[in-house]
């Protein structure tokens, strides 16, 4: 269990050039342990920058990233150790596969940690099962697999490092609804069995409503609002203001509420909407 905190973090791309661009300005976030926190925002809101700051791939221009209260760039500390503790799954991670076999690709991270071979094998098998990679595929080349399978192998590659915190940047981008559900459920199961913190980065409010516990809404490099999923969905106008689409079911219930048919603000699941509509019908 580890605690990750951003403290007044700003990040500027290509400083002192004509292309200078401030991606984050004075952002402070505290990621709650053991929970799935969703960072959501429109393209260019700075959410992917946050991901790379969390494991020290980028160094903040000002402010600090704290892991268990310690600055990850503090003198004498080894940033590569931070990367083993904060696992980061990039967007479209299937493009980083390179090994001859699926097993070896998943084992790349744990091997870099210099673990003993039995432990590596255990971790590979365990991670593969959470990510939904069949053991039959272990001896295949990763390049023979389908897109969805590749994605799962890549996610397993990070899970196999058994980080305390796992950050996933758009893990379901480009997948069909079924592939998406499988990946998110795998992540949820992994969190439950490892007691770890999960940070999901996405632009889909729909996915967030289903899988996140807490949500941070970002816009133009700033935190617009944050809180539990319930709290954030009470502020639908803020979500819209950040340029994001609200889930369809939220749009429907919002319209029904506006017309005085039901009393349901901030509904984001079909079940809840079903309940409310039934309630309203009974009252008639």
């Amino acid at each position: 269990m580890s605690k990750l905190t951003l403290e007044n973090v700003s990040y500027v791309y290509s400083p002192d050039t004509p292309f200078e661009k401030e991606a984050l300005s004075n952002v402070s976030i505290e990621f709650k342990e053991n929970r799935i926190t969703g960072i959501i925002g429109h393209t260019g809101s700075g959410k992917s920058t946050v991901a790379q700051l969390l494991n020290g791939l980028l160094k903040s221009t000002s402010g600090r990233v704290l892991l268990d209260g310690q600055d990850i760039f503090e003198k004498g500390s080894d940033v590569s150790k931070v990367r083993f503790r904060v696992g980061l799954v990039f967007q479209y991670p299937e493009y980083q596969l390179f090994e001859e076999t699926v097993w070896r690709d998943i084992a790349f991270g744990p091997s870099n940690m210099k673990l003993d071979p039995n432990e590596i094998d255990r971790r590979v098998r365990s991670a593969a099962s959470f990510a939904g990679v069949d053991e039959e595929l272990f001896e295949k080349s990763p390049f023979e697999l389908s897109g969805g399978q590749k994605r799962r192998v890549a996610i397993a590659g990070i899970m196999a490092m058994e980080p305390d915190i796992i950050v996933l940047d758009e893990p379901a981008a480009g997948l069909d609804p079924r592939g998406r559900d499988e990946i998110f459920n795998g992540i949820k199961k992994w969190r439950d069995s490892h007691n770890s913190t999960v940070i999901l980065i996405s632009h889909s409010m729909e996915d967030m409503a289903l899988y996140a516990d807490d949500i941070i809404v970002m816009k133009d490099g700033k935190v617009l609002t944050s809180g539990t999923v319930d709290q954030v969905f009470q502020r639908v106008d803020v979500i819209k203001q950040s340029g994001l689409d609200i889930p369809q079911i939220t749009a429907v219930t919002e319209e029904l509420t506006k017309r005085g048919l039901i009393d349901g603000n901030g509904i984001y699941t079909v079940d809840k909407a079903y309940e409310k509509i039934l309630e309203a019908l009974k009252e008639r």
């Binding site: 696992g87 991670p93 790349f108 870099n112 940690m113 990070i158």
Partner: peptide
């Protein structure tokens, strides 16, 4: 750009 991304991704997996 792609190279940059791949380097970052492998670094995240502890590649030295």
């Amino acid at each position: 750009e792609e190279t940059d991304k791949i380097i970052s991704a492998q670094k995240a997996r502890g590649a030295g």
